[in-house]
Structures are given as C-alpha cells and as structure tokens.
Write a protein that binds this DNA or RNA. Structure first.
Length: 804
RNA sequence: GCGGGAAUGGCGGAAUUGGCAGACGCGUACGGUUCAGGUCCGUAUGCUGGCAACAGCAUGCAGGUUCAAGUCCUGUUUCCCGCACCA
C-alpha cells in the first residue's frame, strides 16, 4: 500500500530537479517552432502573492508545459513591474529605500511563485527598476522625443489638498484622494505628453488582424472613441477666424438656436472688450475651475451657464443671428471646445434650452412635440424646416449638408477621437528619470544616448514637495548639470515616468534580457515576436494594452521591432472573489492567502482548483471545500499506484475512454476550458475505480495529460511506475479518431418531443430499421396506441415520433 | 444614459451545427471499512405527486419559430463590468 501522499516532500523534490535541469529555459535554437506565452508581470507588493495571480499564471503554465511536450521552443518569462506608488508610500512611511523594499518584495514573490511550480524561464527574469532595464525605457522615450511625439504642455493634474501631492487619475476615487480621503482639485502644471492620438486610427484598424477576445477589441475601440462629423465655422462680428464647432449632426444646422463654448475657450479672452458682462463671465470661469471632478461629472446635475452679452454670431446656413453662451457642459478637451446647440435633437442642449428659455425648433420630424420631449433618433427621422434638406432621411441629409458646407467653404469633414494624449509625467521619486535637461539658451535638450541610463539619485526624503513637485526637485546636486548642447549650466527634469512606461515594452526585453547594446537583438526579436498568447486582466484593456500597442507601433516605425503589433492573441481571466461572493479585500476580511492553501493541500491541488472552479473567463467565488475536492482527486490518483495490473498496453474496453479523454483534454486546454478538461480526467479516474484496475500504459497516459495542471505528483507517479524519462520530456499523447468510433449508438426515443425510452442499436443500422425498433419498444407502444404516426425523424442519436 | 457580459438544482458549474438538461465537483443523506475520524469505499440526491412502476413540471419572465429550444427570434426584468455631459 502506498503511503499517504506527502505533497511537501514530493513538490519540493521536483522543483529542485527542474531547477537543476534548467528544463524550462527557452532555447536559443531559432530553427525550432516557437511559442511565446505571456502573463502580466506582477507588481511586487508588500502583501505578497494574491490568489488572483496564479489563475492567469497557471492557465498559461498549462499551455507552456503542453507546448513543450509537443516539441515547441517555449519562452514563458517572468519579471517585476516594480516602479510605482505603493513602494514609494511604504518608503515614505518607514524610511526604507524603495530599491531595498522592491528587492525584498521581489524575493518573496519569487519564492511564492517557485513554490507553485510554474515553469518560468528564471534565467530571463527582469526588473523595471534595474538601471540596465530602464536604460532602454529611457532610450525609447528619447526616440519618441526625437520624433516629435513627446512634448511639454500646461495641463491640469489632480492635486490632493491634504497630502499636497499630485495624484494619478487612478488614485482619485469618487473625486477624493484614495489615500487620505482629502479633496482633490485640478492644478495646472507643465507636463510631458506623448502623442498617442497620432496613432488612434492605426490602433483601431490593426485590431482587425488580431486574435483578441471581442470584449477587448470593443473596449479599445470605445476608449479611442472615433466619430465622424463636420467642423463648421460660425461667423462672429469682430472675431475674424469665426467660432469653429464640431458636430456629428450637421443635418440639424437649421435647428441651431444658440452656441455654447467651454469655460476655457480662448474666445472669451480674445473678445473681452466686446463682451459686456465680463465680470459675470469671469466669475463663472473661476467657479468652473474650482469644481472638483465629482461635481463636474455628477449625473443629471442642473445645467449652468452665462450668456456672452455683446457677441454677435451668425448661423451660416440661414444668416440668422444666434447668441453665444459659456457653460461647463461643453468640454475644452474634445472637438473644438465649442458647439452649436440644437435643443430639439440633443438631450443636453434640450435641458439647457429649457432651463434658460431658449427657442426649440424642430428640424427632424418623427418624434413627439419637441417642446415636451427631445428627439434624437437618426434611423427614421425626416428633415423639416431645413430648406434644401426638407424631406430627406437623416443620414442622407448629413451627407448632403457636408457636401454643401465644403462647397461653400463653411465647413469640412472631420474625424474626432475621444482618446487624449498620454500624460507621461508623475511628480514622484520612484519612477524612471526623464533623460532631458533644460538649458536657458537651448531649451529642452535630450541626454546623448551613450549617457544612458540616467540613474535615479539616492535621496533622504521621498515625500513630494509642498508645491506638488517630485522629491527629486530637492535633489539639487543631481539636478544641476550642463547642457549637452552648449555646455552652459542646465537643470534636469525632476518629474519621473509613470509606471506604465516600463510595462509598455517588457515583453521585448524577455527575448534578449542581458543585451547591453540594444533593447534586444534583431535575431531574437525576429524569432520570438510577436507574443503568441497574452493573458491578463480586463482592467488593463484601455491603459496598459493600449499604451504598449502604441509604443510597439512606434518602435516598428523606427525599425526597432519587426512586427506591427506586440500581441497576436489576448485572452482574459475572471477575478477570484471571496467566499462570500464579494471582491477580496483586507477591509472585507475575505482574503484567501495562497500560502495557507499550499501548506494544507499542496501546489498541485491549488493549481488544479484554480482551473477547475469554473469557467476561466468568469469571475468566481473561492471555496475552500471545493479545493478539498480537488485534493481528494489528487489522493485518488495517488492511490491508483496500488491498482496497476500486469496487463500490457491499453485494454480494448478502455480504448474509447483513453482516446476520447486525450482529445477532450488536448482541445480543452487550448480553448482555456480547463474546468471541463479536468472533469474529463475525473470521469476517467472514476471509471478506473469502478473497474478496480488500471494498466501501466493507461496510467501513464493519464499522468501525461494531467501533468500541465498537476506537474509534481504526476512526475512522482511517473517515476514510481518505472518510467525513466520525466514527463516534461515526454511527448504529448495523440488520439486515434478510429478508436472513438463506437459500434453501437444509444438512441433517445421521443414521442412528440418527449423522451419515452432509450434503445441501444448497432451504429450501422439503417434508418428504417432504427425507426421500426423504436416504434416497437415496450415503453413507446402505449404512447402510439390509438394515434396516427404523422412523421418520424431519425437524426444522430434521436428518434422523434410525431403522432396526432 | 451608452457599450459589453450574464441569469440553469441547496452551491460552483456542464451541455458540437438547435438533438436524451443537470457532466464534473461541493454539500447533504444512508450503508460499509476503521479503536477513532474534518479518512477512505459504495449508494442516493432538480422539483411535485406516488410504497412503487410511473406521471407531471422544470434552464429569470412573457410570447414566437421548429418534429425538436438552455441554445434561434421579439419583448421584458434583474444582476455584474467598463465608459460616462465626447456634441
């Protein structure tokens, strides 16, 4: 009898063997077929590994292990995305150096990941905070700068009035500071920006050729937010350039009864001598600037605004004079910062018109009384009160109006995007220094490439300064330098890069992590790129995924990488929730520590349960008793060693099960249907227990299929069975379709669609005979008595007798 | 408000192109092994009625298409996620 399975002993034994054998390291043999699976590299936090990490890691580990067994050269890498706020905040609190904190946290993460038996190539481990890594992050930034894609702009940042710290958007939750709950206001600062908007169209178009799950494609497209419309200029007396507006509904131009500009619109300053009520207008502008994010975005809030008295604007389509208002419901950051208001056919304009008693003119018929209800339908509306557009459908009218506007020189076709340029600076210490210096004579000057990396200096106090600058602003010695251009005294940039920088290209570094000449060699990139399969969280769809696609396209444009896109395939896992069905968090007290699970049940059980608990892409609550069920299965597999019979090969009665399971498991792994793959193996084991014995070859096949999920116990049993070749070096089994063909079929016999009997018949029996056998079945006969058989359908494994 | 996803037993979830709903696991009940069990083995387990054979009802709700619907169509409710005054 086998001893009770000791998971600690077996798992640590095999982890050591794998490490000594270097068997999971990618080979530099570029003639082999390659497979490059990728998980989002973790942020090494002080809390250690979370149960969410292993879900993605295990899923990709299964594929990595399977593909190795199929003969692929697999690059399954790991590293640390280690710059960022939690570490810096911890440093501020404790005084420990962020680099030291990062080092310790990474050590703990590494130890935890190794204990779970992931087949990472540890020889290629990277860390974004390592100067030899961020040298290349800085290099990419300089290239962007060189090509005019990085520029400095005065833009408002989130500023916590209580911590006196600039915050990233993600750190502002419901309009208040995530850390202290203090009020967050907008503070204008000079910031480095990256022109991601220049890539907007390509970021949409190139999605077509990628194997991304549909949700991701849709979210990216929505985030980029392309819209087609027209830019129309409204003449204004005393303002020669006129007031430009952007609209997607130029068909409604006849219904424009007023205009609105955003509080920041330059026309106010330009026309300050003409505007009669400047005091009132200035007061409104200031009030708008003071509003917090929360107030500005509050739903259903009352529209506010002030009429710009004295401005004389004209509707270009009918030369009617129309008033101009200022209101914060118009955003400076989108379109032209000014709109034509068509209250009859736009909800916001309608609300505003009702509040300020502006006229509402119907120009699209099809709705109810526009004085009572706004009508925005574009599918069935017909133009009225619109001169030459009268009688047209909305879509035709839009086309006709654009043609007319272009012909008269009053407007142009225009595509707009919601996507904004990427605010690329943070007023923080723990990030990549920006390799630019400011010279009084030469302006901003890039460091020469050979001076990279520009290393982050040692400082005493990581707290940002009172005016919201980075702590580096106090590192006076470091800041002082000379201009690389003219040699005069100059000052370094004190802001650092956001933590999205290092993660925007890390997969490239994995291809050639120790290269000190370039970010990775051409040969390595040509062989390994693109990433074949990238799995990660949906929360990264619009930020990390979009940013890294943008950087990659830029690198492609300058010839630094061989592919247009970084990732060929993108999938996503569902979040693991607490046992109570809520999101796991310390405050809810429902956090499951992976260490505890591994201690009690072992890594194999933990991995298996994370894959078995439910559909991979769905969020799912953790269940410790459910995990124990997987441990029971592991134990059952362990005890099978006492059931091995002397019979050679695969028993004929087991052929269909063995080959069916090989097929099912092989296909389900690739489709990320891990739960049903495991269920199929459980079914097989149940069958073996019912039979009371198993042959060595059957057992070996099961172990091979199970190995990617539960690599430790399967290797141990493989050894116990006497196989000298470890499973990781064993070929993945193949199935024989012929073995799946059954010589009999169990038909379900229905009468009027209701199942009445089951009948086992030879597979090659003719339909007429099947029909006859079904009709003659004792359980069926009573339902046919006194009825006329109108029709009989025999298909697949169903016989349906229709009677009436 | 807009966009996306989901709804199946006590629970997590399975169900090729429409083809025997509830695989697999958890939980529960009973039986067995054991000095013992938070062990193991076996049996049962959608609901209702019936001792039973069996019958009826069942995939959020209401209709429809079909020999046949969890799956397709129309309408509707609830929940989750993302975006949110984007003109």
């Amino acid at each position: 009898m086998a001893e009770r399975y000791d998971h600690d002993k077996v798992e640590l034994k095999w982890q050591k063997i794998w490490e000594d054998a270097h068997c999971f390291e990618a080979k530099n043999d570029y003639t082999m077929p390659k497979f490059f699976p990728l998980i989002e590299f973790p942020y090494p936090s002080a809390q250690g590994l979370h149960v969410g990490h292993p879900r993605s890691n295990t899923a990709m580990d299964i594929l990595a292990r399977k593909r190795r067994m199929e003969g692929y050269n697999v690059l399954y890498p790991i590293g640390w995305d280690a710059f960022g706020l939690p570490t810096e905040n911890y440093a501020i609190k404790t005084g420990a150096h962020p680099a030291k904190v990062t080092f310790e946290n990474a050590n703990r993460f590494r130890q935890q990941l190794k204990r779970l038996g992931f087949s990472f190539d540890w020889s290629r481990e990277i860390n974004t905070t390592d100067p030899s890594y961020y040298k290349w992050t800085q290099w990419i930034f300089l290239k962007l700068y060189e090509k005019g894609l990085a520029y400095k702009a005065e833009i408002p940042i989130n500023f916590c009035t209580s911590c006196k710290v600039g915050l990233a958007n993600e750190e502002v939750v419901d309009g208040v500071c995530e850390r202290c709950g203090g009020t967050v206001i907008q503070k204008v600062r000079s910031q480095w920006m990256l022109k991601i908007t220049e890539y907007a169209q390509r970021l949409i178009d190139d999605l077509d050729d990628l194997d991304f799950i549909e949700r991701v494609k849709i979210q990216q497209k929505n985030w980029i937010g392309r819209s087609e419309g027209a830019e129309i200029t409204f003449p204004i007396e005393g303002y020669p350039e006129g007031l430009k507006v952007y609209t997607t509904r130029c068909d409604t131009l006849f219904g424009a009864t007023y205009m609105v500009v955003s509080p920041e619109h330059p026309i106010v300053e330009a026309m300050k001598d003409t505007i009669e009520n400047m005091d009132e207008v200035r007061a409104y502008q200031q009030a708008a600037a003071r509003k917090s994010d929360l107030e500005r975005s509050e739903l259903n809030k009352d529209k506010t605004g002030v009429l710009l008295k004295g401005l004389k604007a004209t509707n270009p389509v009918n030369d009617q004079p129309i008033p101009v208002w200022i209101s914060d419901y118009v955003l400076m950051g989108y379109g032209t910062g000014a709109i034509m208001a068509v209250p009859a056919h736009d909800e916001r304009d309608w609300d505003f018109a009702k509040k300020f008693n502006m006229p509402i003119i119907e120009v699209v018929a099809g709705g109810r009384d526009v004085q009572e209800e706004v009508y925005t339908d574009v599918e069935s509306g017909i133009l009225v009160n619109s001169g030459f557009l009268n009688g047209m459908h909305v879509k035709d009218a839009i086309a006709a109006m654009i043609d007319w506007l272009e012909e008269k020189g009053l407007g142009t076709r225009k595509v707009n995007y919601k996507l904004r340029d990427w605010v690329f600076t943070r007023q923080r210490y723990w990030g990549e220094p920006i390799p630019l210096v400011n010279c009084e004579k030469c302006g901003w000057v890039p460091l020469p490439y050979e001076e990279l990396p520009l290393v982050l200096p040692e400082i005493e106090d990581y707290q940002p300064t009172d005016d919201g600058s980075s702590a580096l602003a106090r590192a006076t010695e470091w800041l002082k330098t000379t201009c690389p251009c003219c040699g005069a005294p100059a000052v370094r940039e004190a802001d650092t890069m956001p933590n999205w920088a290092g993660s925007s290209w890390y997969f490239l570094r994995y291809c050639d992590p120790h290269n000190d000449k370039e970010l990775a060699s051409k040969e390595a990139l040509e062989y390994w790129m693109p990433v074949d399969w990238y799995n990660g969280g949906m929360e990264h769809t619009t930020l990390h995924l979009l940013y890294s696609r943008f950087w990659h396209k830029f690198l492609y444009d300058i010839g630094a990488v061989p592919t247009k896109e970084p990732y060929q395939k993108r999938t996503s896992h569902g979040m693991i929730l607490g046992e109570n069905g809520e999101k796991m968090s310390k405050s809810r007290g429902n956090v499951v520590n992976p260490d505890d699970v591994v201690n009690e049940m072992g890594a194999d059980t933990f991995r298996m349960y994370e894959m078995f608990m439910g559909a991979f892409d769905q969020p799912i609550p953790w269940s410790t008793t459910g995990a124990r069920g997987c441990r029971r299965f592991i134990d059952r597999v362990w005890r099978m060693q006492d059931m091995v019979s002397d019979v050679e090969g695969i028993r004929p009665e087991m052929m269909a099960t063995v080959h069916g399971t090989i097929k099912k498991v092989t296909e389900d792994y690739e489709a990320m249907k891990y739960n049903t793959a495991i269920a199929a193996m459980m079914t097989w084991v149940n069958e073996i227990y019912n039979a009371g014995s198993v042959t060595k070859e059957e057992f070996h096949t099961l172990l091979t299929l199970l190995n990617p999920v539960a690599p430790h116990i399967t290797e141990e049993l493989n050894e116990i069975l006497g196989y000298t070749q470890p499973l990781y070096a064993t070929a993945w089994p193949t199935w024989d379709e012929n073995a799946l063909v059954k010589n009999s079929i169990e038909y379900g016999v229905q009468v009027n669609g209701k199942i009445r009997a089951r009948i086992e018949l030879p597979a090659d029996m003719a339909k007429e005979e099947v029909e006859a056998a079904a009709k003659a079945h004792a359980d069926v006969v009573p339902f046919l008595e006194g009825k006329t058989v109108r029709k009989v359908i025999v298909v697949k494994n169903i016989v349906n007798i229709v009677v009436g």
